[in-house]
Amino acid sequence: MLKVDNLHTYHDYLHVLKGIHFELNEGEILAILGSNGAGKSTLLGTLAGVYAPREGNITFKGEDITQDGVQKVVSKGICLVPERRQIFNSISVRDHLLLGAYHRYKRDKKTIQQDYENVIEMFPRLKQMLDRPGGLLSGGEQQMLAIGRGLMARPQVLMLDEPSLGLAPLIVRDIMGILRRLCEEMGTTIILVEQNVKAALKVADRACVLAHGRIEISGTAEELMQDSSIQEAYFGKSKKAKKAT
């Protein structure tokens, strides 16, 4: 469905992504892991059309979208839920959701009402606060709203940048559960950038670890969960301790 081939992205003179390759199938969840500065957000930004890559190709359903801007990418069905949620403080929950469907008004206006109802059914907590400004929502509610806003675009590929950032573990579990439901019930393909490795690997089908702009490790989520270097780097389990067990 989505194919990324030899992607190189720069921020001015800084070479951030250094030849990224991966393929993503429909209805799959791909977790992208890595430390700060590894290039995770830049990768999502490049896929979303925010940054134009200098080299490489992005193909979506056989169509080259490498140089497409954000508006084109969104209208083709790839939507980014940006880092730190980026909720509009003074805009109501309802208007947030409608903004998510912004680019659909010319194409399929009739289905917006149905999708709106589906989203508030998926996030019942939002239904109780449709008139409330986004700035007055808790962190978890804001994350739900950000995902709901993304869903209103009817994305085939939904990309989330650190959705668990600053949230309580129970809320993180809820959010990850919603992502799994989206994938299974609606067939949405998800790219999840996370620093919460445990939560990400639990929900993902496949994962890759990004370091210094390159994919260092990739495989199924289960494989990565067992990978000794991942265990050592992210779960604090040393090789010695592992041997002892």
Binding site: V70, Q71, Q86, F88, I91, L99, G100, Y102, H103
Partner: peptide
Amino acid sequence: SRIGRALRSIEGSEVASDAVGVN
């Protein structure tokens, strides 16, 4: 209207506005 929401989104956050496809 949709235009009004787009305008308010620009006022709120250009990053998020861009992400939903507002020109």
